[in-house]
């Protein structure tokens, strides 16, 4: 096959499938909006302190799947799932599970930076505050901003409105805001699609730093980005069933190196070589 002209992360994760230390185990997950089955039968595992990228053409359900991991889909009337997502050993959709508790452990960064119309400080302090943390707020804020590689740029203007920051800074502020709650996992829904290339590079570098401490799932439209930053890649596509209804399907899930060099599925190969999508 023709090689896509992209940089691919080295094989930093072990090759043997058994060596994946799962934070999430997705078992036969289907997502519905009312009667419509948006995504069908997904099985995958998310490894601890790895970056897992979810790629695929528009409408393939990758964002839908991402939003299942912190139960953000619960907010859409009529949305429900079949199958299981195990977070460690616990089913995220179990009867006694509180979605609020889920979101405290599994943070999220959105496509468009969405800082609150408050000061930079207040943005970062908000998560800890609603989670009942009151003491040492200055330290919490500084730590989160430092980890998000934003501290040096904003330390002298913490009282300024967050909306006065540039788009890239706003997105790093949103990452800091998520980190401040001390989550285990950070979900990123196309975090760079609204940013320029320089801001994008900064976020990608930041992801590599965060990977030391957090498990990251990223949905991206940008294949090069998936190749550059991720350890494993899940390729989704949309398929039309016999009744003419479109469903999102997981085609292939493997180490990023393999997905981009020797994918086992023809559809993956077509997509990454640019013949489709």
């Amino acid at each position: 096959m023709s090689q896509p002209n992209v940089t691919i992360r080295g094989p930093e994760v072990p090759n043997t499938p058994g060596s994946l230390d799962p934070v999430f185990t997705v078992e036969d997950l289907s997502v519905f909006y009312g009667d419509y089955e948006a995504v069908r039968n997904v099985d995958m595992m998310i490894g601890r302190r790895e970056i897992t990228a979810m790629i695929g053409p528009s409408g393939c359900g990758k964002s839908t799947v991402l939003r299942c991991f912190n139960r953000m889909n619960d907010l859409i009337p009529g949305a429900h799932i079949k199958g299981k997502i195990l977070y460690h050993d616990e089913n995220l959709y179990g009867d006694h599970v509180d979605p609020i508790e889920v979101r405290r452990r599994i943070g999220m960064v959105f496509q468009k930076p969405n800082p609150f119309p408050k000061s930079i400080y207040e943005n970062v302090a908000y998560g800890p505050k609603v989670n009942g943390i009151k003491r040492n707020m200055d330290t919490v804020v500084e730590e989160a901003l430092t980890k998000a590689a934003l501290w040096d740029e904003v330390k002298d203007k913490l009282k300024q409105n967050a909306l006065s920051l540039s788009g890239g800074q706003q997105q790093r502020l949103c990452i800091a805001r998520a980190i401040a709650v001390k989550p285990e996992v950070i979900l990123m829904d196309e975090p760079c699609s609204a940013l320029d290339p320089i801001a994008t590079t900064k976020i990608e570098d930041l992801m590599q730093e965060l990977r030391q401490e957090y498990t990251i799932l990223i949905v991206t439209h940008n294949m090069q980005q998936a190749a550059r930053v991720s350890d494993r890649t899940a390729f989704f596509t949309a398929e039309v069933d016999d009744a003419g209804v479109r469903h999102g399907r997981l085609v292939e899930f493997d180490q990023t190196t393999r997905i981009f060099t020797k994918p086992s599925d023809k559809r993956t190969e077509d997509y990454i070589t640019g013949r489709f999508g």
Binding site: R103, F116, Y126, G127
Partner: peptide
């Protein structure tokens, strides 16, 4: 008030009431 503000707040583990009252 844009829905993204509500989402941002809820994604941090805020309850619906906290989201309404504080954002």
């Amino acid at each position: 008030v844009p829905p993204s503000i509500r989402e941002g707040s809820l994604a941090l583990g805020a309850t619906q009431w906290q989201t309404i009252w504080r954002q």
